[in-house]
């Protein structure tokens, strides 16, 4: 049986988790203040003990692995339900997809989509095109180059979005950028990428150049950022910096 004090304590704990201070709670329940105070101080200690944050690079890499596994699982599920096309070998399906994209591209849709920004109706076409490009790239070196290129595109989109009043799109784009860089980092961490040391060093330098150029461009764009999007742009910059640093670090380790 819950007594009144236990109800009050529970409410106060919820408020503390939301950021209220002990004093706020005591003022709200003066009749229980004496008994509440020591317990709420202990609650604060418990909350502080639990307030650890994951390493951002772990969060990014883990997110990449989980997303990749989810996509793979979904793809397997879909392929097991291919029905009428089940007799087709995978390479034939991939080729057909590429042909469709090329045909559609010939009509100008994909070409037009290449400049699309998040929020634009053609933007999903741009992302779909990238996924196809990645799916038909089989070498680790090719994949690494694509991740760098896609990260560069996301960075360019962020620069364009920085002057708009669209913090959600900025956050989404920053998440996609982080995802591309995390994929590159995971590739390097697994010891994959260019087989040749010189090529690996060139790729690393290329990434460093892209990172410097993108950060510089975003810094310049920040002067025109609207107040409502300022926080999102600041966070996007932090993520960009962190992502590039982690990917570079992984590539450097791989080169050693």
């Amino acid at each position: 049986m819950v007594n009144e004090f236990e109800e009050v304590l529970s409410v106060c704990i919820d408020r503390i988790v939301m950021g209220d201070s002990v004093e706020d709670c005591l003022l709200r329940y003066p009749d229980h203040a004496r008994e509440l105070e020591p317990l709420l101080r202990t609650a604060i200690a418990a909350r502080q003990a639990g307030a650890v944050k994951a390493r951002p690079e772990f969060k990014a890499v883990s997110g990449y692995h989980v997303r990749a596994a989810f996509r793979e699982r979904t793809a397997k599920h879909v392929s097991s339900k291919r029905g009428a096309f089940q007799w087709l070998p995978r390479w034939a399906v991939a080729t057909a997809v590429v042909l469709v994209v090329l045909v559609v591209g010939a009509t100008g849709t994909v070409a037009a989509a290449s400049d699309a920004l998040p929020g634009n109706v053609l933007y999903p076409v741009k992302l779909a095109g990238e996924r196809v490009q990645m799916a038909v790239t089989f070498s680790d070196e090719g994949k690494a180059k694509l991740y760098i290129e896609f990260a560069d595109r996301r960075a360019a989109e962020l620069v364009n979005l920085a002057a708009t009043d669209a913090p959600e799109r900025i956050e989404e784009t920053a998440a996609r950028l982080t995802s591309n860089l995390a994929a590159l980092e995971a590739l390097a961490a697994a010891g994959r990428g260019p087989a040749d040391e010189t090529k690996a060093a060139e790729l690393e330098q290329e990434l460093a150049r892209h990172a410097a150029r993108s950060l510089d461009a975003l810094d310049k764009a920040q002067t025109e950022t609207q107040e409502t999007a300022k926080e999102a742009v600041d966070q996007a910059r932090d993520k960009m910096l962190q992502g590039y640093n982690s990917a570079l670090e992984a590539m450097q380790k791989r080169g050693r």
Binding site: V2, F5, E6, E7, L9, S10, I13, P38, L39, R41, T42, A43, A45, A46
Partner: peptide, 12 residues
């Protein structure tokens, strides 16, 4: 609610 009360009291 009862358990969290007891736990906090004991921790204190």
């Amino acid at each position: 609610k009862v358990m969290q009360h007891e736990a906090l009291r004991k921790l204190r």
